[in-house]
Design a protein around this nucleic acid. Structure first.
Lengths: 133, 133
DNA sequence: CCGGAAGTTGACGTGCGCGTCAATCCCCTA
DNA sequence: TAGGGGATTGACGCGCACGTCAACTTCCGG
């Protein structure tokens, strides 16, 4: 721990993932921990990226898509690599996320409606019970 | 088309899926089209279910999870199969969906913040250009 | 009667996201 | 000096969600 870096084991305990997964993400260029000899040391930046990775997975994005998303946060690398292209990419991702959020809202609404139906059935059932007695 | 049912080919064109996928969903008990001889005929109910399936997939749910969700909409089958249990299951799913929606909102906010950073960099760049001329 | 389009059931293949070994290495403590 | 804990790199395996054949049957127009 040269600084505020973490070993792979610490990362695993911290985020609830396996070493295998972290190495896999590294191979897919989603993470790039410091390699001191053979060992890996994860910086705060790696941790932030891992958070984004895990969140992306919860939303059903593939690792390839998550990789793209991570690129958007990787500014400041020498050449100002087509900032406007990056911005356009970000715009697309934003639209995608917003569509998903709205669709989720719809799904929640439908589920709640269905829950009301169930509650209604429960109420009727207890009423017919009382009537039978 | 005895009624307002559809063949597998019509379903595929309508929803942009393959026959293989539809048969796979059937095998996993997510769909149960009418079987007339060997052929399949999909009812409006099947179409509604397929919509839910595809939406669930977009949210990153597994087919097993989607199956559970579909169960919640399957009421009215003879015995009032533990309505309260169904309601509890629905409650869990609702909480899950809401958590996801909120997380998505956060992600959108972060992405928009990053977009502002990029716009800022673009603005500074065009300013230094003008200054250099 | 024949061809083509659409449907069917297996059965094997494929890409993704890791799990699960094995064999090895390094460091620390007892 | 020996062992234990944690790390490493292959390499193979696995579950999911289908894709992709092959080998039919059924129907319908010409």
């Amino acid at each position: 721990m040269t600084e505020d870096t973490m070993t792979i084991g610490q990362m695993c305990r911290c985020f609830g993932v396996t070493p295998r997964a972290l190495r896999f993400y590294e191979q897919k260029e989603l993470l790039s921990p410091i390699r001191e000899g053979q060992n890996r040391y994860y910086t705060p930046r790696d941790r932030a990226r891992l958070k984004l990775i895990l969140r992306g997975k919860r939303f059903g994005f593939s690792l390839a898509e998550i990789r793209e998303l991570l690129e958007l946060y990787r500014l400041g690398d020498g050449q100002v690599t087509q900032l406007s292209a990056t911005l356009q990419s970000a715009e697309r991702h934003r639209a995608d996320l917003i569509a998903k959020r709205d669709e989720l809202a719809t799904a929640i609404g439908e589920l709640e409606a269905q829950m009301d139906v169930i509650r209604q059935m429960l109420a009727e059932r207890s009423q017919s019970r009382r009537a039978a007695e």
